[in-house]
Design a protein around this nucleic acid. Sequence first.
DNA 1: CCGGCAAGTCAACATATGTTTACTTGCGGC
DNA 2: GCCGCAAGTAAACATATGTTGACTTGCCGG
Lengths: 210, 210
Amino acid sequence: MTAEPPVPATGSTDGEPAQRRRRDAAETRQLLLDAARQRFARDGYAATTVRDIADDAGVNVALISRYFTSKEGLFEACLRAAGDELRRTTGQTPADRVPEAIARHIADLGAAGLSSQLSLLLRSSGDAGADEIRRAVLVRSSEQLAAARGWRPGEPGSEQLLLRAQMALAAGIGVAVLRSSIRLEPLSSATEQDLVGPLRDLVDALLPPS
Amino acid sequence: MTAEPPVPATGSTDGEPAQRRRRDAAETRQLLLDAARQRFARDGYAATTVRDIADDAGVNVALISRYFTSKEGLFEACLRAAGDELRRTTGQTPADRVPEAIARHIADLGAAGLSSQLSLLLRSSGDAGADEIRRAVLVRSSEQLAAARGWRPGEPGSEQLLLRAQMALAAGIGVAVLRSSIRLEPLSSATEQDLVGPLRDLVDALLPPS
DNA sequence: CCGGCAAGTCAACATATGTTTACTTGCGGC
DNA sequence: GCCGCAAGTAAACATATGTTGACTTGCCGG
């Protein structure tokens, strides 16, 4: 079927869709990143141990230090990845499709069953570097959101609009956390379809379409 | 001036408004509770150490175990206190005043400069008991919120209303966290006055006044 | 005034956790 | 085929942290 040499899966049955090459630094790095994003988003930074992450990824703990320098380096990498993802969404989305995009982000459990990456944005590591990255991501996202509704930097009376955009972002993040981390019902089992209506009402109320 | 015996303050100048009696279990307990609520809300459960809390409260670490059994016992006590406070608010507030009440909760830094207690509600200790308390608080609050807008338990099509109430609650919590924990500007320095307008729009959009 | 007891202190302990170091394994070019 | 080097492993280390137990202090009723 494939040119890949037969590789014994970690467990007895091959659970992973793409069987991994046996020694591949890039893939191992990605496995760690995925496992860390999920853990950090769901449990928070301090509650997550590097051994948890390594076990989830099925690799050795020491590789975290090797590939990301430290636990905090790994966290910063996660933050950057989530930021890129979010920027891609808010950048490409036309103004009137923002609620759908947010709803998809919240409802989306990702390819690997990830908790929403939005949750990651309010997790804090206590590290100044990570805090700065997260703040930058949030500032940029809220500015993109506000700009789509007419906000221009420095324009008088425009601060209001930025504030409202940040509140919309906060709402999305709050919903994501109550869903994926707290698991509040019925919010937790609501589908993307269930969420998009209320979210549209919410976003439109905060940021009236021009 | 007062019947209190002259008591040397902890520091050189008496910073506390009410000078504390030297050996008062009830007051010490409360000091711990206040310090813990602030720390847990701002930094999260795992990132907060019992020594931090004890130092903030100006008492010995061992008293945490004595008065609250364990760190988790203290956290549960904080959760209960925050729940009582929130219930008092959502219970007493007439339906059309809910946005103001939430805005006050978010903007209010409390008597002792506390971060908003709302933030506490999404902090997780990983402990099953604490999770259950938090879930109960959130469920009750969202039900009270939904009930004020016509929700009745089990009524068909009413689930929608509960979902929307939970999203409003999530929005409030999200704003509280981005304000007090992440310190996102300009959201962080917004006053109660700045917040109440957008919050009214938000709540009314999610839960239209009958 | 004083003895009992609650309130508070101190130091030690067990353990969990991030990180490092020395070692082993196996892939890929020659 | 085989050797070097990157990829991966295992164990040890230093430390931070929750908790406990023995000890001290000072308030209060008699």
